[in-house]
C-alpha cells in the first residue's frame, strides 16, 4: 500500500479469537484482525491495542513470528486500558495499530550463541525471539534462556517453559525472588543466573527484557561476563502513544523509543540509563 494513503493513527477493528490466563492479572489474547489485515511482524515489535472508548496502550507481540496470521499479545491488567483489554471476552471487538518499532537483532545474531534474559512480564516480548531461534535452530550456536520472576505462581507460559526445558538444544534456567512451599528451582535474582551461565563472551548476543532496574543490573552482569556492550540489546519501555515518532511521549534522550526502539543496543543506552528521570 502507498504510505500516503494509510493513516497510522487509525486502528483497524479486530476480534478476540481466544483468551487464556497466563498468571495473576495476566492474560494472553489471540486476535483475529480479519482477512485484509497486514500480516507479519518481527520478534520484539509491538502493536497499539485499543479498548474502544477507553484508550490505547502499546503491547509487544508475544506469539510466533513464523505464523504471521496469528496475532498474539500478553497483557497484564494494571491500568484502565490494559484491564479493559485483558478482560475482553472471546468475540469482543478491539482496535489494533501496528506493528511498530525495531525488534530483536535475530538476523545479526546468526552464527552466534544467544542468551535471552527475561524479568517478569519481560518474557512475553522475548517469546517470539525464542520461537524464531528454535525455528531456525541450526543457524545459531548455544541458546540460553534465563528467566527471573517474583514467585513460582507468577511464572509466565509455564507449560511451554517446561517443554523448552526438556529440549536438548535449549538451556532454560528459571529463578524466583522468593518461594513458599513446593518450589524446587532456583531462588535469587536473575543476575545470579548470568554469573552461573558460563557464556562464551566473544560470540554471544544477549537479549534482555524486563523492568528497567532489572535490565540495568542484567546488562552490568553481562558486561561483567565480558560480553561487549555492542552485543547486548535491551527492550526499553516508555509511554508510547503514536508508534510513529510524532507524539513525543517516548523520548529517551536522543531516542524516540517507538521509532528507534523498543530494542536498543546497550552501548547507546549505557550513559543515559544512569541519568535519573530522563
Amino acid at each position: 500500500m502507498d504510505a500516503s494513503t494509510i493513516d497510522p493513527m487509525r486502528p483497524r477493528l479486530a476480534r478476540v479469537r481466544s483468551r487464556r490466563r497466563d498468571g495473576p492479572q495476566v492474560w494472553t489474547l489471540e486476535i483475529d484482525a480479519g482477512p485484509e489485515a497486514r500480516s507479519g511482524f518481527s520478534a520484539g515489535q509491538f502493536n497499539m491495542l485499543s479498548a474502544l472508548g477507553v484508550g490505547e496502550v502499546p503491547i509487544s507481540f508475544s506469539g510466533d513470528p513464523t505464523e504471521p496470521r496469528r496475532i498474539v499479545h500478553t497483557i497484564r491488567a494494571v491500568g484502565a486500558v490494559s484491564t479493559a483489554l485483558a478482560h475482553l471476552g472471546v468475540g469482543a471487538t478491539l482496535g489494533i495499530r501496528g506493528p511498530f518499532g525495531v525488534g530483536w537483532p535475530l538476523a545479526e545474531a546468526v552464527g552466534q550463541d544467544v542468551v535471552l534474559v527475561a524479568g517478569g512480564l519481560g518474557l512475553a516480548p522475548l517469546r517470539p525471539a525464542v520461537y524464531h531461534l528454535l525455528a531456525q535452530r541450526s543457524r545459531y550456536g548455544q541458546i540460553t534462556l534465563l528467566y527471573g520472576t517474583r514467585s513460582p505462581a507468577e511464572i509466565l507460559f509455564r507449560r511451554e517453559l517446561n517443554a523448552w526445558r526438556r529440549r536438548a538444544d535449549l538451556s532454560v534456567e528459571v529463578t524466583v525472588d522468593h518461594a513458599l512451599g513446593a518450589w524446587d528451582g532456583h531462588i535469587g535474582v536473575v543476575t545470579a543466573l548470568i554469573e552461573r551461565a558460563h557464556l562464551a563472551a566473544r560470540h554471544t548476543t544477549a537479549l534482555v527484557c524486563g523492568p528497567e532496574i532489572m535490565m540495568r543490573f542484567a546488562a552490568e552482569a553481562l558486561a561483567a561476563a565480558l560480553i561487549p556492550s555492542e552485543s547486548i540489546y535491551l527492550s526499553m519501555e516508555r509511554n508510547m502513544q503514536c508508534g510513529v515518532g510524532l507524539c513525543g511521549h517516548c523520548q529517551f534522550g536522543g531516542l524516540l523509543l517507538c521509532r528507534d526502539g523498543p530494542v536498543i543496543r546497550y552501548d547507546r543506552l549505557r550513559e543515559t540509563l544512569r541519568v535519573r528521570e530522563l
Binding site: L52, G53, V54, G55, Q241, C242, G248, H249
Partner: peptide
C-alpha cells in the same frame, strides 16, 4: 509538537 490522545464515548457507548 507533543500530543496526547484521549478516547471518549457517549453514555450509551
Amino acid at each position: 509538537f507533543c500530543t496526547s490522545v484521549e478516547d471518549s464515548s457517549d453514555l450509551t457507548g
